[in-house]
Design a protein around this nucleic acid. Sequence first.
DNA 1: GTTAGTTAGTGCATTTTTTACACTAATTAC
DNA 2: GTAATTAGTGTAAAAAATGCACTAACTAAC
Lengths: 244, 244
Amino acid sequence: MATNFDNYFKSAFTVDNVIFGFDEGDLKVLLIKRGEEPHIGEWALPGYFVKTDEDLDAAAKRVLSELTGLTNVYLEQVHTFGSVNRHAFGRVITISYFSLIKIDNYTIQPSSIALQAQWHTVNDLQHLAFDHDAILESCLQRLKWLVKTRPVGFELLPPKFTLTELQHLYEAILRCPLDKRNFRKKILSMNLLVDCDETQEGVAHRPAKLYKFDRKRYNKLVDQGFNFELKETPTKKKRAAELS
Amino acid sequence: MATNFDNYFKSAFTVDNVIFGFDEGDLKVLLIKRGEEPHIGEWALPGYFVKTDEDLDAAAKRVLSELTGLTNVYLEQVHTFGSVNRHAFGRVITISYFSLIKIDNYTIQPSSIALQAQWHTVNDLQHLAFDHDAILESCLQRLKWLVKTRPVGFELLPPKFTLTELQHLYEAILRCPLDKRNFRKKILSMNLLVDCDETQEGVAHRPAKLYKFDRKRYNKLVDQGFNFELKETPTKKKRAAELS
DNA sequence: GTTAGTTAGTGCATTTTTTACACTAATTAC
DNA sequence: GTAATTAGTGTAAAAAATGCACTAACTAAC
């Protein structure tokens, strides 16, 4: 084993952010068009080098902000990718972070090495730069798990939403149809939603009630041992759909 | 943003392995006594620098083998720790890996910078070198989750084991008592265990039946959509215990 | 203002799963 | 053979999950 440590201190690391949003029934991810080598001109996750005197979490926030203008976004580490040849400039491993945001609350402002920053529908993506396809995929898995075990779906919806919107969100992420009555029963029985006493406006059909997520109540329940849990329900319909 | 990339290529990364075992009813973790600065003489997770031309997973395996003599161990990445000042020699982030092994199957052979390599009871640990306390803790969380969602408990037991041993394993990891009858019913109903038609020997009481885990059957069931799932069952007894 | 179109919203019966709980069986040590 | 120790077992009650189809409220078009 080497005793000259200098040889080890020749690597770099980056952070890559996988920011999910939800719009028009589709799960979206925020991508930038790169204005710098390597992979110039390609679509990629918003990421960049971590400074040598900067914590990883802080770097993820800074980089996201510099490339897309997004600030005050909660980021969570997911996985580290470190294949030897994943970067053309040398040994660069990357730590991926992910987040869920309400698209409407933020204005995307590409800058720095980002020529553009845009929401892309996850189901309809081209190949991304570097190994970002794999990074995105691992974050999708994380999202799927998270949405079943924590009430994070609300992060992707406007503050006031209908139960149908919420159901569609879950269906988009879990990629399986859910039974309307059972979904509503389950969600409402958790007592995490507050009826806003308002209804949708401007729709050409019976307007739905609006609800909001009661975070205080959730925190209280968690303290009491409550565990948010939602199963994928592989209903008959689902199995039938899978066969076709 | 810097355009001179050289500044970024001055960091190093290490891997740290959290190897769990189970013995005499206790969850154990494999530690080394360090024979190199920094933190010379302290107990630490078996970890070392990743070579610049080496994949992370491969590095984890190599380092584990060099320090403890363990080979052929399945390792899984858990989390990356990267506080600016976590290492005295410069900017060093570390990627943690974890594994479950059957203690009896392996001989520990400390070498390289490891003065000693020993199993330590998790519940009874001193402070570890670097930020290894936090790394261990995050792996314990991972283990807790894994044990509930995958049949990995068997990795920690000898090939043939009794249901009581299995239950004690779960209780040690989940840190909660389980109901004997319900535990057995649940486990047996999954049809993942094969009765070996043998019983314990050398015990001063009614000998228990031995079972082994049927991995083929598990894989087959998974293909059919089976999902291993075991809940923490906060029984009355547990709540009572928590109050005291 | 009647009709067609669209989505919202609701209940119940059945099945499955979970829970709580206490005694008998088999063995060894003395 | 008696005491000590752990293995092993069943059931009833409660809770949760499942499958399923109609009515309600609103708009748009005529």
